[in-house]
Simulated assay, not measured.
Amino acid sequence: MSSTQHEANVARGLKAAINNPRVSDEAKESAQQRLDNIEGATTEQPTTEHENRVMGGYKATLSNPNTSDSAKQHAREILDAASVEDYSGSNQAEFDEHQTRVLAGYKAALNNPRVSAEAKKHAETYLKEQGAL
């Protein structure tokens, strides 16, 4: 395990202790101090990988049909402020490919003898809702 992963695990544990009602106030204060030290050391220069994941989350927000318009607008603002280029087209293609694979999986379930009748009924209902059957 890398030291970065170890620090992340420690930080998660400290956050859990801070929010645990069974932990004493003294222990919560100590955990908060340790967390501040860890976050102070790690948040000065965020990693490129972390930034990519965050921006990827905002990109995914734009193509998620269950996301509100205000959340999509916020995601656009963040991506524009970060000068992320071409965030609409490539993500839509990935979303379309994902949807195609989901539908193919449900269609395969209909013909699989090891799938229960209940699961086949669910697959059929989903496919009808999506207009794929």
Rank of each mutant, 00 (worst) to 15 (best):
K28I: 02
N20A: 04
V10G: 00
N20Y: 09
N64V: 02
Q5S: 09
L133I: 12
R34W: 02
Q32Y: 08
Y106N: 07
T48A: 14
E124S: 14
F95I: 02
L133P: 09
T43V: 04
T47W: 01
A75Q: 00
T43I: 04
A119Y: 01
Q130I: 12
R34A: 15
S30H: 03
A93Y: 02
E97D: 08
A31H: 06
S70H: 06
A81K: 12
E124F: 07
A93V: 09
S3T: 03
V10Q: 06
S116T: 00
E118L: 04
G105A: 04
A108H: 06
G89E: 15
V54G: 01
N64E: 07
P113T: 05
V84W: 09
E49I: 10
P21A: 05
E124K: 14
E85C: 12
P65S: 01
Q92Y: 12
I78K: 07
Q5R: 11
A82K: 15
N9F: 06
E124P: 10
D96N: 04
R12N: 15
A117M: 08
T47M: 02
T47V: 04
H50Q: 13
K72V: 06
D36G: 05
R53G: 13
R101Q: 13
T125R: 12
E7L: 09
Q45Y: 09
S3N: 07
S3M: 11
I18E: 10
E49V: 08
N91W: 11
A27T: 08
V115G: 06
H98M: 12
H6M: 08
Y87V: 05
K59Q: 05
S70M: 11
A41M: 08
A27R: 13
E77T: 01
N111P: 00
H98Y: 15
P65C: 00
L14W: 07
A8P: 09
K120F: 03
L79V: 14
A17T: 04
P65Q: 03
A71H: 06
A71C: 05
A119G: 04
K107N: 08
S83P: 11
R34T: 14
I18R: 03
A123G: 13
H6C: 04
N111C: 05
S116V: 03
N20L: 01
R22T: 15
Q130M: 12
Q73S: 04
A104I: 02
Y106L: 14
A71E: 10
D86A: 10
E129T: 07
K72I: 01
L14D: 12
E129F: 10
G56F: 05
D96E: 10
I18D: 04
Q99A: 15
Q73G: 00
A41Y: 06
A11N: 02
A104F: 05
T48C: 08
A108Q: 01
H74V: 05
T43C: 07
K72D: 03
I78S: 10
S88N: 15
T61Q: 11
Q73E: 08
K15Y: 09
K121W: 05
A17D: 15
E77R: 00
L62F: 08
T67I: 06
R12I: 10
T48M: 12
R12P: 11
D25N: 13
A71Y: 09
